[in-house]
Amino acid sequence: MIKMYGIKNCDTIKKAKKFFINHQVDFEFIDFRDNPIDKTKLQTFVDKVTWENLINKRSTTYRNLNDEEKGNITLDLVLKNPTLIKRPILIIGDDIMVGFSEKNYLKL
């Protein structure tokens, strides 16, 4: 089963959900706002994909960070601001996929 992490009102999440439903792929959706991720899980994400691939630099939240925060992304900063995380985060077994890509999703 695929676990999808994100925020329910995110357009990219809506696209990913629609893709899985249309392709009859079972998934579990976990909303960061309703069920905040813990420090251990976030560290796992970072270890697998790095901050560079995990942080959504186009988000309003990121743009509102000061230069020091942008240069020093921490677990606590991201846990306090989960919208910094690029969406969706897919957990497939031991693998993690970040963002929506129809081409990559078809490979699943």
Rank of each mutant, 00 (worst) to 15 (best):
I2L: 09
Y5A: 04
Y5F: 03
Y5E: 04
G6K: 03
I7N: 01
I13W: 00
A16C: 13
K17G: 01
F19T: 13
Q24F: 09
Q24N: 09
Q24R: 12
V25S: 01
V25L: 03
D26E: 11
F27L: 14
F27A: 05
E28H: 02
F29R: 02
F29T: 01
F32W: 04
D34G: 06
N35Q: 15
N35I: 14
P36R: 15
I37T: 10
D38P: 08
T40M: 09
V46Q: 05
W51R: 11
E52W: 08
N53P: 07
L54T: 02
I55L: 05
I55V: 15
K57I: 08
R58Y: 06
T60N: 12
T60M: 09
R63Q: 12
R63F: 08
R63G: 03
N64K: 12
D67L: 14
E69F: 11
E69P: 10
E69M: 10
G71T: 02
I73T: 14
T74H: 06
L75C: 10
L77C: 15
V78T: 14
N81L: 09
T83Y: 04
L84P: 04
I85L: 00
I85C: 08
R87L: 02
R87P: 00
P88I: 05
L90F: 15
L90R: 02
I92Y: 06
D95R: 14
D95L: 14
G99Q: 05
F100P: 07
S101P: 08
K103H: 07
Y105F: 15
Y105V: 00
K107C: 12
